[in-house]
Amino acid sequence: MARIVGGINVTHVPYIGRAIANNLQQDAYWKPFFDGFPPVRDWLAKVKPDVAVVVYNDHGLNFFLDKMPTFAVGAAPQYQNADEGWGIPTLPPYTGDQDLSWHMIESLIEDEFDITTCQEMLVDHAFTLPLELLWPNQKQCPVRTVPVCVNTVQFPLPTAARCFNFGRAIGKAIESWDSDARVVVIGTGGLSHQLDGQRAGFINKEFDLMFMDKLVTDPLWVTRYSVPDLVELTGTQGVELLNWLTTRGALGGEVTKVHANYHIPISNTASGLLAMEVV
């Protein structure tokens, strides 16, 4: 059976793509963000995953409001990145793992998750940039991928409890996959930020740090909050932390922290990074 080696949660912001393209990693503005990654890359070099299941949210590239899924799972041989309208460089395609995709789809629907299956799927910066940050300077991303897209765009969003349980079901699916592959689960987005409204620029350091701590030790703590609570506490886009929670769910019971980083701001966002190993 396949083995989950751990999980990594990491912020996504389009401008990270521009910073990478322009080699700004050691620039004073970007350094505190990029310096978080080497210890996580070292850990990845040690645990050697073959496949990454990437839990993210689409930002209006693959999904529009005509067909907006709560949970979508990719089942394509390859995933293309594409123009999102912001002039950030388009990255090369990602190789899918269709065997794992279909095994997950079978298992998740059997477990009563009403997913949308995507045999063709464009992946945006929320999928590509975290992979680029974790495996930099590669012609081709060295792991096979399965995209899992969570709706954080159009309310109502899935509840925190539903996301956590969805993550658990993803973990169960991976661990029942008849393969000797090593799988890492990656969650992207957050932490606190709000792009829109008079409250634009809202950031909540205290909550973010508590969230990162609780995610390791007591993830169900998050489920006490409704989605509107989370918007109030973390901003309209801060709710992307649901992807972090889903990822944590996939890791199951106990985890240890491999490495964490937190820095304010990159763009309008409190950036977080949290790598966890399954005990």
Binding site: Q98, D99, I105, E106, Q119, D178
Partner: peptide, 20 residues
């Protein structure tokens, strides 16, 4: 997948293998 599939004579279930 190596998984045992249900066999229904004269019938092809449009599953992941077929969809791919």
């Amino acid at each position: 997948t190596g998984k045992q599939k249900r066999v229904i004579p004269g019938t092809t279930i449009f599953d992941g293998d077929q969809a791919r």
